[in-house]
Design a protein around this nucleic acid. Sequence first.
DNA 1: GGGGATCTCCAAAGCGCTTTAAATTCGATG
DNA 2: CATCGAATTTAAAGCGCTTTGGAGATCCCC
Lengths: 343, 343
Amino acid sequence: MNLKQLSAHLGLSQTTVSRALNGYPEVSEDTRKRVMQAAEQHNYRPNTRAKALATGRAMAIGHVIPLSSQHEMMNPIFGDFISGAGESYSQAGYDMVLSLVADQEQSRAYHEMVAKRNVDGIVLHAPKMQDARIPLLQEIGLPFAVHGRATDISTPYSWLDVNNTSAFQRATDFLLDLGHRRICLVNGQESMDFAFRRRRGYEAALKARGIPPDPGLMFAGEMTEVYGYSTVRRTQSLEDPPTAYLVSSIIAAFGVRRAIEEAGLTLGREISVITHDDDLSYLRNGSDVPVFTATRSSVREAGRKLAQLLITQIETPGSPPLTELLEAELTVGRSTGPAPNRI
Amino acid sequence: MNLKQLSAHLGLSQTTVSRALNGYPEVSEDTRKRVMQAAEQHNYRPNTRAKALATGRAMAIGHVIPLSSQHEMMNPIFGDFISGAGESYSQAGYDMVLSLVADQEQSRAYHEMVAKRNVDGIVLHAPKMQDARIPLLQEIGLPFAVHGRATDISTPYSWLDVNNTSAFQRATDFLLDLGHRRICLVNGQESMDFAFRRRRGYEAALKARGIPPDPGLMFAGEMTEVYGYSTVRRTQSLEDPPTAYLVSSIIAAFGVRRAIEEAGLTLGREISVITHDDDLSYLRNGSDVPVFTATRSSVREAGRKLAQLLITQIETPGSPPLTELLEAELTVGRSTGPAPNRI
DNA sequence: GGGGATCTCCAAAGCGCTTTAAATTCGATG
DNA sequence: CATCGAATTTAAAGCGCTTTGGAGATCCCC
């Protein structure tokens, strides 16, 4: 059933039917009702492709996922982020199209997207500190929004980010308040912008108390269980081992916990742990009481909001870039406690 | 730059240019070369929407993700699956469009997709044993392929699945060969088809040796770390506790391991564990030597193949449904060993 | 009752592409 | 040299929708 058939069936012109369905005022309420009903009854939906062609709007938003950084991006948080974004999209009537693109083809991919005109905007994932994709998209002129930020880029663009710096600063402060002085940072790969910011927060908190950050206690790597485990093993054999760990991901925190328990130590007594918790639907931080003290920020919520932000941006052309900074909340669980007294 | 402009620029008709670009034979090699070059130079890409409208093919494939079962579906494996599928799509020139749909709107969503005509086919995720979506899609007539199978549906349809039954049967056999008799199944939610099949494999192996399956050793739940942990806690306090665990997901296996180690037992000595391993990019089963003995099957590979299968299906209309059954491999790690002698 | 306003509705153009049917070119052929 | 046929090229008709520019009705007012 297409518009032509529907309007023939109704004895009306395509124009009128189209207008009735799209809520234009120059159509009487009577006919609008008739049209609506007939459309409902025949399960009529305008053909997306034709509509897109006629309006110039694709009603779709693209997510470009770099394939090379699959370990950092196609990672635990992806599903939840997409799921959040998807909610916003379906509410606003947008489709979401995913493009998996090899790293060296990034530039080509964006040009292609804009030339093919099958999306109205793009969401950028996993920005690096100085991300070439941002100036590229600015130059192309396709609306876009970034999940995260790129520290080294100063021209304005739309983004939504968690305040990683303040989250990790507060977490570090929290540990310092408990008397910890040797705090180990188990960070993500520092080519990623968020990891850089987290380290900055951590260092700022230390410096504020006159404690020089110890490079021997700062680690960056892919956030796996094994990475967390082996980092604890390594650092606990130092002559002056850390009494606390600040971890960038709950998966790595699992490994941290395992190493600690394997060493016969108790979480929250001899050793404290704070992890960042993306509040993933399948990786809950405990069931009722949180297991880990954590800086929490729902990545699903971020997806929802960023999508919303991009849609606003698309639908109000000429608007200035929009930004939103989410604060992570610090939830206290059972993995932190006062620093043990060492003699 | 659109076709009209390009052909004006070349002094040719749109027809000729279109044909030259699409490889039709009725155009001289000379002009084809000229056209190709000009297109390249001006970075011309046909407008997807116009092309779709003209050809009737959307060059896009839809993935419908049920929102309600987000915990079971928007889960760890999703990112890897999508990433694999994405590779196949981009190779074949297809886009991937994701739809997050609330459970009660499933039917409406499919009807809408076919009416809006913005996808050429659909991938179905996380089938239940008797999944209403399959007959619905068959009736609608839109090509589709299922990741997994629906045990209770006998009419033929396209699917790709891991042989869950044989995988878990082999794993159980392996444990039985090691002398284990009390084997605990830590399964996923049994409304999911794969979980049902896994239990069937487990039970078949037991029965083949004359061991009646003990309902007290069979668990089904959402596959979280805590679930694995608490299942071990609970079962180890039985009067005749299991000496082995067969786990459906590596995340739950983390919890299983934690509970075992916390109890002062050693993995692979007092207690053996086999887990299913989806070979996720961010959840490696150890770095060099696998930590867990596992039935492994790459979910990324599954994505790649299922996408391929669906594309074949779409591009050869009238073809019978295609199916593919992947065998999981059993990789022996350090989590299994002979059953301890109990007196 | 004539002359605007105001409502409704419609014909047709246009979005950018493919494809059918027809026209043109050109070398070869008798 | 007229003619035929193959090789190229083109004009124009769609694909299904929106939207511009009018055209009829209808109504109100003087």
